[in-house]
Amino acid sequence: MMVAGLEPATGGSIVIDGSPVSRPRCDVGIVYQEPVLLPWKTVLQNVLFPIQIQKLSKANHLDKARTLLGSVGLGRFLDKKPHELSGGMRQRVAICRALINDPAVLLMDEPFSALDTITREQMTVLLMTLWEQVRKSALFVTHSIREAVYLSDRVLVMGKHPSTVFWTERIPFPRPRPLSIEETAEFNAICSTLRLKIDEALGASVTPHAEEHRSACAAMRLEA
């Protein structure tokens, strides 16, 4: 949320493309835990909402919106309202909305945490496919180690209280990555390392809250 410019930085500085982040900016796309779709608007209108707010030409972005929605399998649902969609579909709309104005950076704050396990896995693969098309730098916060390792170039383990970067792990797998890499010994070895580091991070923290959650933060830093 600090990276999105929605909250002031508690320390240090946040810089995107050489300019510091002090308030929300147009070149950042955000996907939240909840889809946050406007219930009275159709899928297509929801995806175009950032365009409307930023006073850009809707006509110029209409094709892009259709293409994005088509690539996440929602081509037949352009005129549906959010309440007619499943949870996974709504979150796909939210991802398309975050990408509509071609942001420099994509921020995803546990975007799949409200979904069931199977949908979540499908969404992960879908995000990977979509990313191959758009190739944006993305910061992806998750509590799932496997999700982090599968998606990321670099995984940062965050401590709790204070939320500082405790460990950085580079993920060596080349792209595009098939889901089958999750079966390899190397993949599982990385996951084990990260699990250890998370335990250490929680042990190192001094507040009693630490035991309540296992906190893993993964950052995909993806140079296009």
């Binding site: 929300p24 955000i30 909840e34 707010i53």
Partner: peptide, 10 residues
């Protein structure tokens, strides 16, 4: 969350 979303869109 909707207000935050809206602010996030500038």
């Amino acid at each position: 969350i909707y207000v935050r979303f809206s602010r996030g869109l500038t």
